[in-house]
Amino acid sequence: MAITSVTGKTAVKSEPAVTRILVLLDDTRGARAALETAADLAAHQHAELVGLFVEDTDLLRSAGLPFSHEISMTSGQTRPLEAALVERELRERARLLEQALASAGTRRALRWRFEVGRDRLERAADTAAEPRDTLVVGRNGWRRHYGPAMGSVASRLARATRCSVLVVGEERPRHDRPVVVLQPGGDDPSPTLDTAIRLARDRSRPLCILLRPGSGPSAELERLAGEWSRRVGTPIRFEHIADTRAPTLVEALHRAEGQALVISRASEPLATAEGYRLLDELDVPVLVID
């Protein structure tokens, strides 16, 4: 993750720049929104845009079974799931998604690439992504109703991959609301905070730091906040939360009217599979970073 630190008197690059923005493509509305966001991000960071389309092996195997049926999510009716049909659909889908990627990349004069992998989704994404990459995943509205029980694509990928994952919804966030960051619990809070600060600075928004229970803002945190506030002229405020469970975090984010959440993969809410439901509960973009 390319983060320009503002923690010191002089701004230094703590890490190399992001080289690639990966976006997981499928033909859902959420994925289309993710493609636009990823293209914008790549243009902003001068990074390469990589579209990743995964032909899920579980689905292909399932289609090869003689009794396999697809149950319509809308009507509940079943119809045979045939391997040939699935193969044909995947090819057609890949063609259309490549066109969409090309269009998004060309409009922004980006370097772009379309990759097709045949594997389980998490494994394919993890294989494709490098730690310095950012993976953009769309949050599909309808899947959220059923996904948590099954593990949504977004939460599954955020959990499985080693890079930063940005989960975006179909709705554009409002631009007058703060960026919210959960105070990191580890020894080095800088990467998470730096990312949140940069995000807020780039979009000229205030920053809201959610403080863990029992902890106040450390001297270092206050110094950071004051420094940044002086430089960009936007205030930083601190909010206490009772605990770090996902529902509490969701509540705090609503209260702060946050337009984006930055959270460390190492933080408590993401320590379990249940915690990853947080990613589906929220209406705002969530950036999960290592």
Binding site: D58, R61, S62, L65, P66, H69, E70, S72, L81
Partner: peptide
Amino acid sequence: ALLQTQNGFTFAPKDENGEVMDPERF
């Protein structure tokens, strides 16, 4: 396993690795 398809869901038997069973094995 309960899998998401393009338009809905499907069920398929899992193998010992938790992945969907290969049709040949089935």
